[in-house]
Design a protein around this nucleic acid. Structure first.
Lengths: 340, 340
DNA sequence: ATTAGCACTCTCATTTAATGAGTGCTAATT
DNA sequence: AATTAGCACTCATTAAATGAGAGTGCTAAT
């Protein structure tokens, strides 16, 4: 269904205005504020058409119109122009990010979403890469005390994972080192998913003398890597109080409960493809966020797609601005994290 | 200023009622609901006295009375009886906690505060132990790639810290191991605060051959340990929506903003002594939480005082119940974490 | 095809009045 | 001297009434 040019520009004006004011937009506002060259009555007729076509909604008879999810979708796909940060702003962002004297993926990313929530004024989140689909870059055992061992697993996606293991009996540093070396050489380059019975028994074969210790260690590491697959961090949850859609106590409560629930967030942020993904209102499959929009993009570590950063807020979101900022931020982030 | 018995029991009744109902309490309510054996007129006079003495406040003339901070303080110190969980409840709690197949202080504690927020229905938080005042139980370097090294520091308070170090030039596994062993033997048993110039130059002396690498490594580790001294985790922030004091949008916003600010939380939770510390309303030095109460207790790892867990909520808190639960939970927690 | 004009609708803020819980005071009672 | 009944008064809360304002939809004129 192709819209005429006039309908398009009216729709664009309405959405622009609504994003700015959060008030239902009336025909007279459009006629006065935006130079349309036609009277409010004509706009009224067009608006009526746009409503019939599903691009607009009326909260109640004789109020202005607000965009529907379909309206926003059209706006995002065809009408708006992405609003990129200026060069000066980009410099500021880069400076803020460059602090990273220490190369720690975790910290850099947390800092990124903090910035993201601050400049967008929405809630931002990051989904850390799935451990399962990362490959092992290094796995080493550290003997902390007679019966305590920590396995430190580093993945190509920059995750460092500590697995604490309590051994059934005392073990020498020697033995630990031998097992450690063996594990490292055998598991290097594999994803967690690829570690199967064949791999394990191959290691066990070469470790006959240590089978008891070995059997105490491997399952724990394996379970731990499998279990806590990925993680989310949040920033700026209270930013929603800036927006009148959350003046209603229950709305605010629902939003905050939703983001307090990690499972929901993980689902909401995952499966963003390489580029920017925008999900508007009911397009979202998750019940709890059917009145929110999410803008998310994946970032890369060492050139490999790792996790996802995103912004979540009301469907009346400043798409043009947020998209610009996220694009800019992921570019900078990818650059910082590109070194292998 | 000693209160008479009758004043005491009236004060207790008022506070009990107010904690339950969140409504200003009137003299008639007390006379009817609590068997006082005196008329509402008499209670009225006593209440007037209690207000003059500062134990009660009146939101406006001709409304019931609500407790002042001083009133709550008296209630907590002299009037209430701590309400411990029943044996069955304790068993449930223990079962929930016992899941810990893996001995990881971090996870166990996060699980504890999750439980704490769920059964108290308030917001709970944990302050992890100060790294500075913990002693090094193990420090080891792991070579991840030619120029990447990770230092894994384990403290007696159960903290595992990973410090990522990018070396200026390629270094052999041999060298790393030698430095690692040296660091471990020299720093073992010291607190971070105790690591001073004397210690560092003593190590440098024995590591003449590696001074370049060594100088690249040590400052990074040192800074990292110093910098991020302690951390807080939160659970159940949205629980405040259960309480009418946060029906007001601004109140809720203030509370949630406060909680989102880690510095405030750290300050609020620190310096709890060994036992349970209760801070009521304006007793709190921090501006942002002058209308909240905090109940906190420190927990021990391996017998040594480590971090603090706490509950934060409105001054109209169910002190008797929360104190009982926190006492019970720290006991269980200390028991789980007592093994060295 | 467009627009001016007008009746109609619905929300929101304000006013008004009624209700009710609770106090404080005084005078009577124990 | 302490307690209590009784009553006038205060203040918050609620519901109903009112009016202004923004906006639409329709009709007739351009």
């Amino acid at each position: 269904m192709e819209l005429g040019d006039r309908k398009k520009s009216i729709l664009k004006a309405i959405i622009t205005d609504y994003i700015e004011t959060a008030e239902p937009v009336g025909s007279r506002t459009i006629a006065k504020k935006y130079e349309m060259g036609i009277s409010s009555a004509t706009i009224r007729n067009e608006m009526s058409d746009l409503e019939d076509l599903g691009y607009l909604e009326q909260p109640h008879t004789s109020s202005g119109r607000i965009p529907s999810d379909k309206g926003y979708r059209t706006y995002v796909n065809y009408l708006m122009q992405v609003n990129y940060p200026t060069n000066e702003e980009i410099e500021l962002i880069k400076n803020y990010m460059k602090f990273a004297t220490v190369y720690e993926v975790d910290k850099i990313i947390k800092r990124t979403i903090k910035l993201l929530s601050q400049i967008t004024m929405y809630t931002s989140a990051v989904l850390t890469p799935s451990v399962n689909r990362s490959t092992v870059k290094s796995i080493q055992l550290i003997r902390v005390s007679a019966r305590d061992v920590i396995a430190v697993v580093v993945t190509d996606t920059g995750i460092i994972k500590n697995v604490v293991i309590k051994l059934p009996k005392e073990v020498s540093t020697e033995s630990i080192m031998r097992i450690s070396n063996m594990l490292n050489s055998k598991l290097y380059g594999l994803t967690i998913e690829e570690i199967d019975l064949a791999v394990i028994s191959s290691i066990q074969n070469e470790m006959r003398g240590y089978s008891e210790i070995f059997n105490a260690i491997l399952p724990v590491i394996y379970d731990s890597l499998k279990a806590n697959d990925c993680d989310v961090y949040l920033e700026g949850a209270t930013n929603i109080f800036n927006y009148p859609e959350y003046d209603d106590r229950d709305k605010a409560y629902n939003f905050l409960s939703m983001i307090e629930n990690k499972d929901v967030l993980i689902e909401a942020l995952s499966s963003g493809d390489d580029n920017i993904t925008i999900t508007i209102g009911k397009e979202n499959e998750i019940e709890e966020i059917k009145d929110c929009s999410i803008i998310k993009a994946s970032y890369k570590v060492g050139g490999k797609t790792a996790g996802t950063i995103g912004v979540i807020g009301p469907t009346r979101m400043n798409y043009a601005r947020v998209i610009g900022i996220i694009k800019c931020l992921t570019d900078i982030l990818n650059d910082i994290l590109k070194s292998p």
